[in-house]
Amino acid sequence: RGFLEKAAVKKMAKAIMADPNKADEVYKKWADKGYTLTQMSNFLKSKTAGKYDRVYNGYVIHLD
């Protein structure tokens, strides 16, 4: 289950990176699912340092 969630989160993160207008909708879905910042950090780990920082930081702001 965790692997599928991670894959889904990364897919949506890539969608945000391609079209930032989708961010609020995606952040709301993640918040509704109760994803914590720790979970998001783990889901968005990448071999490329900083690749998903913008998405993660946007989610931090959304939760605030």
Rank of each mutant, 00 (worst) to 15 (best):
R1S: 13
R1F: 10
R1N: 12
G2E: 12
G2D: 15
G2A: 14
F3M: 12
F3Q: 11
F3Y: 13
L4T: 12
L4A: 13
E5H: 07
E5Y: 05
E5P: 06
E5N: 07
E5L: 07
K6Y: 11
K6G: 12
K6E: 09
K6R: 14
K6D: 07
A7I: 13
A8P: 03
A8W: 15
A8K: 15
A8I: 13
A8L: 13
V9R: 01
V9K: 01
V9L: 04
V9D: 00
K10R: 14
K10I: 15
K10N: 04
K10G: 03
K10A: 04
K10S: 04
K10M: 09
K11W: 07
K11C: 14
K11L: 11
K11Q: 13
M12D: 15
M12H: 05
A13G: 03
A13P: 00
A13C: 05
K14Y: 07
K14C: 12
K14R: 14
K14Q: 14
K14I: 08
K14N: 13
A15R: 09
A15F: 06
A15Q: 12
A15N: 06
A15K: 07
I16Y: 01
M17R: 04
M17Q: 05
A18V: 11
A18S: 12
A18W: 06
A18M: 12
A18I: 11
D19Q: 06
D19H: 05
D19G: 03
D19L: 04
D19S: 06
P20Q: 09
P20C: 11
P20R: 05
N21G: 10
N21F: 10
N21C: 15
N21A: 13
K22M: 14
K22Q: 09
K22W: 05
K22T: 09
A23G: 06
D24L: 11
D24T: 12
D24C: 15
D24N: 10
E25S: 09
E25L: 09
E25G: 08
E25T: 08
E25H: 07
E25P: 04
E25C: 15
V26M: 08
V26R: 02
V26T: 08
V26W: 04
V26G: 03
Y27R: 00
Y27P: 00
Y27C: 03
K28E: 07
K28A: 09
K29A: 14
K29G: 08
K29F: 14
K29M: 15
W30I: 00
W30P: 00
W30A: 01
A31F: 08
A31Y: 09
D32A: 13
D32I: 08
D32M: 10
K33S: 14
K33A: 14
K33W: 15
K33L: 14
K33Q: 13
G34A: 05
G34Q: 05
G34K: 06
Y35E: 00
Y35Q: 00
T36K: 03
T36I: 03
T36L: 03
T36D: 08
L37M: 06
L37G: 04
L37Y: 04
L37A: 09
T38H: 12
T38P: 11
T38G: 11
T38V: 14
T38R: 09
T38E: 15
Q39A: 07
Q39S: 04
Q39P: 01
Q39W: 04
Q39F: 04
Q39D: 13
M40P: 00
M40N: 00
M40H: 00
M40A: 02
M40L: 13
M40K: 00
S41K: 15
S41Y: 12
S41G: 10
S41T: 09
N42Y: 13
N42A: 12
F43E: 02
F43K: 02
F43W: 15
F43C: 06
F43Y: 07
F43V: 05
L44T: 00
L44I: 03
L44F: 04
L44V: 01
K45L: 09
K45H: 10
K45Y: 09
S46K: 05
S46G: 08
S46V: 07
K47P: 10
K47S: 13
K47H: 10
K47T: 14
K47V: 07
T48C: 12
T48Y: 07
T48G: 06
T48W: 08
T48V: 11
G50A: 05
G50P: 04
G50W: 03
G50Y: 04
K51W: 09
K51F: 09
Y52G: 01
Y52P: 00
D53R: 07
D53W: 07
R54E: 15
R54F: 07
R54V: 14
V55Q: 01
V55D: 01
V55L: 02
V55W: 02
V55H: 02
V55I: 12
Y56D: 02
Y56N: 02
Y56R: 02
Y56H: 03
Y56G: 01
N57S: 09
N57A: 13
N57R: 12
N57H: 11
N57E: 15
N57T: 09
N57I: 10
G58T: 01
G58W: 03
G58R: 02
G58P: 03
G58A: 04
Y59D: 02
Y59A: 00
V60W: 07
V60Y: 05
V60H: 10
V60K: 14
V60D: 03
I61T: 13
I61N: 12
I61H: 13
I61D: 13
H62Q: 03
H62W: 15
H62G: 02
H62I: 04
H62M: 06
H62E: 02
H62L: 04
H62D: 01
L63C: 08
L63N: 02
D64G: 15
D64S: 15
